[in-house]
């Protein structure tokens, strides 16, 4: 199996509204795969098609080598929905037992204890889910999704109800799962989480894929370069404009900053400057932040997400 998830032009139309338009993605085994987009971009609809909740209008794909929505795929698949609601009359342990039965797993109290500990709910299992805080409900939901030791885990906004400490704990859980070889498909509004955790990212906007790439490819697609050097002249700057299609900015301290359209162009510009007898003291490349890439790709509609991410960061600091 080359890909854990592979979709071909996956499309969902509700009446006249196109929720997802020809989404084609490929997720390799063991990846933490980020799925981003502004509100209403079609992320949750796409996840629902991958998990078999929603039927595609057109296109198709496979999950764990099985057609979308197949029972065989769901045996080794965990899913934490964005709208996490569970039977409020059950205790935490009852809920895990219920999902153990749904997964058709043997009843193993030890495994349930292990899951409770993993999601930070040890000792809380005798209380009713209805009495849990939102964060605890999200944790128990994650526990349910992890019960079968899935090969693929769909997490739709897994930290939306968690405090900064809880977010970090979930990030650590995801990192641990990745180390154990699990593939995680992560839909979140928190770009910092994606930047920290994900190997690859797909950004969708208005139902279409705006960009799909590995994280490094995405962040190094444009490089901001700060150059400290002596021996500049106007001819050299003009040639940089022409050859590298960029506008160098010279600061009062004599530093020149410019943007290159790829990390591979850094040695090229270094060679060029040396060839023109520029004394090169320092050359510092800086990749873009995911936030910059995101805003560039989705435009103003992504503002809400960036603001949310900033709030989350502030919360984490506080």
């Amino acid at each position: 199996m080359d890909y854990v998830i592979e979709t071909r032009e996956l499309t969902k139309v509700y009446g006249t509204k196109i929720a997802c338009d020809k989404i084609s993605i490929a997720v390799k085994p063991g990846q933490v795969y980020g799925f981003l987009g502004p509100n209403g971009a079609g992320k949750s609809t796409c996840i629902k098609m991958l998990t078999g909740l929603v039927y595609p209008t057109a296109g198709g794909g496979t999950v764990l080598g099985q057609p979308l929505g197949s029972v065989a795929a769901r045996k080794k698949m965990g899913y934490l929905p964005e709208l996490f609601r569970y039977q409020d009359w059950m205790t935490g342990r009852d809920l895990l037992k219920f999902h153990t039965r749904l997964f058709r797993l043997p009843m193993d109290e030890g495994r349930i204890d292990q899951i409770l500990k993993l999601v930070g709910l040890a000792g809380q299992d005798k209380f009713k889910v209805g009495s849990y805080s939102k964060g605890m409900q999200q944790r128990i939901g994650l526990g349910c999704a992890l019960l079968p030791e899935p090969e693929l885990l769909f997490l739709d906004e897994p930290t939306s109800a968690l405090d900064p400490v809880g977010r970090k704990e979930v990030r650590d859980i995801i990192s641990g799962l990745q180390k154990a070889g699990m593939t995680v498909f992560l839909n979140t509004h928190l770009l910092s989480e994606v930047e920290t955790l994900c190997d690859s990212v797909t950004i969708i906007n208005h139902g279409v894929v705006a960009r799909s790439a590995s994280m490094s490819e995405l962040l190094l697609q444009r490089v901001n370069l700060e150059i400290r050097a002596a021996g500049w002249d106007e001819d050299i700057l003009a040639e940089i404009r022409r050859r590298f299609q960029t506008e160098p900015v010279t600061s009062a301290e004599g530093k020149v900053t410019l943007t290159l359209d790829g990390h591979e162009r850094v040695p090229e510009i270094a060679s060029f400057l040396v060839s023109r007898n520029v004394a090169l003291y320092e050359l510092t490349p800086q990749g873009e932040t995911l936030e910059n890439v995101f805003i560039r790709l989705v435009g103003a509609s992504g503002d809400a997400i960036v603001a949310e991410d900033a709030e989350a960061k502030e919360g984490a600091v506080g």
Partner: peptide, 14 residues
């Protein structure tokens, strides 16, 4: 309506 179903029908259950 409550959303409880989301975590049920995504399990290996027809």
């Amino acid at each position: 309506e409550s959303g409880v179903i989301l975590s049920i029908v995504t399990r290996p259950l027809r």
